[in-house]
Design a protein around this nucleic acid. Sequence first.
DNA 1: TTTTGAGTTGTTCGA
DNA 2: GTCGAACAACTCAAA
Length: 436
Amino acid sequence: MSKEKIVLYWMRRDLRLHDNSAFYYALRSGHRVLPIFVFDTSILDHLPRRDARVVFIHRELTEIQAQLRAMGSDIHFHFGTPQDAFAQLLKTYSVEAVYTNRDYEPYAQNRDKEIYAMLEAQGIPFIGKKDHVIFDKNEVIKDDGKPYTVFTPYSRKWKSNLRPYHYKAYPNAKYFDQLLKIHLSDIPTLASMRFEDMELAFPEKTVSTTLLSQYGEKRDIPSIRGTSRLSIHLRFGTVSIRQLVQQALPHEKWLNELIWRDFYQAIMYHFPHSVTGAFKPQYDRIPWRDDQEAFQRWCIGTTGYPIVDAGMRELNTTGFMHNRVRMIVASFLTKHLLIDWRWGERYFAEKLLDYDLASNVGGWQWAASSGCDAAPYFRVFNPESQTDKFDPDYRYIRQWVPEYGTPAYPKPIVDHKFARERVLATYKEALGAQSN
DNA sequence: TTTTGAGTTGTTCGA
DNA sequence: GTCGAACAACTCAAA
């Protein structure tokens, strides 16, 4: 019996069936479509047993499998490496093509190169589509053909390039009859993959127009719900960026945040060195302090600076931190404590549910002043003034640092004035020094 | 090629 | 309390 000819749609960080580019093109390919997902052990092996992001992915995929089964179709799961998954699938099916949405992270780029080579050897096209961003890495570039490194001109070009078809939803549902009719195994349980289930409530997938219209004035106040909390859904593609842009168009401040996301994705692609080192190389000369104890106090939120500690405790407790506070704690670690931004970046990577490599590295390098279009190095956030401005009644601080104001609360880990002068002198000397 | 204006999110100092 | 300038120069983008 000859094997059935199908195309595969490989789902990764685009966990949705609606308005999904690669899935759409697979459905329009003229062949039956089998969605697949790989629980990639080369990633999962490095994660702790209790990991909220794994729980999130698992929940979403369980729902997706239910939706597909309601149509008489299914999704194929593999627990292992993508290489093994494809080796197995190619034995079972006659695969005409593999469709997937592009992922710009270095790990993903390498993985996809390998898969591409593997499929190419068998004459199977591996087709990557744009889905994660509105504009791909080379679609918003300067007139001389080079990538932007400054946000404002990038955003102007982004906006002038934007046409309605860029954010038009892909009508996937119209073509669901192209799905392969099949019944496959249930999604592997979390326990079978050595993970624990967790009782968690994740943010919803929608944002109200009220919130968007008030975003500009409320987004900096961490004690109120002024931000969309959609970041985790953008991270895993459980919402579509096109749909969000459509909704964001009348709300410029919030639209800008989505443009920042495209910007940092493009920066990561064009300047991969900035994932592991300073975007501006001279900032790699800064002699960071190797102070494990101070770093530990920053991590657990006992620096004696209440706004910093509140932020870190919110992160440790919920896997989320308000954006304004992210800037404050990042400035504090890099400038007050003079600790390498990579340490902080790694800690965020471990803790943030919405962790996204490009945005996280971009944000940290912005705070450390080493990034493209970063804050000038002499801009040192004053935790007290930030509190006066953005948490004047200490509502956020009291929520996360209940012992603030009692003798149980620690004394400041370092004096502000001293720390400020120290970082200015250190940066100045390091940046002034000759590179050779 | 040269020139010009501009550049996410701040802080401090002194008038 | 309020306001403007200095912070430190540099690099980028576009005309």
